[in-house]
């Protein structure tokens, strides 16, 4: 992101491009992040750490919008559905 809003007189800037976005899009994003990382072998603890970290912008945004309880439920369900054997299993 830039420091400030783009200058309106900047000829290289396009402005006013509408994007469809709502709470449902954020929820879908949270489901996908959780499922993709679960498929790759992350357990619930590691996936939740990713959502909690403010430096993972998209995941953390979902955490803030949806709340901890909903994200924890999403992660738990994905981790349970895509569990992987670990050393010692």
């Amino acid at each position: 992101m830039p420091y400030g809003d783009p200058a309106r007189t900047d000829p290289t800037m396009l402005v006013s491009v509408a994007l469809p976005a709502d709470r449902e899009a954020v929820r879908e994003m949270a489901w996908v992040f959780a499922e993709e990382f679960a498929r790759m072998g992350f357990d619930a603890r590691r996936i939740l750490a990713l959502f909690r970290s403010p430096f993972y912008g998209g995941a953390h945004q979902a955490w803030r919008v949806l709340g901890a309880a909903e994200v924890e439920a999403i992660v738990a369900e994905c981790a349970a559905a895509w569990r992987r054997p670990r050393e010692g299993d």
Partner: peptide, 8 residues
């Protein structure tokens, strides 16, 4: 810092 508020 400023961030995008929607999907990407």
């Amino acid at each position: 810092l400023p961030e995008h508020k929607t999907w990407f």
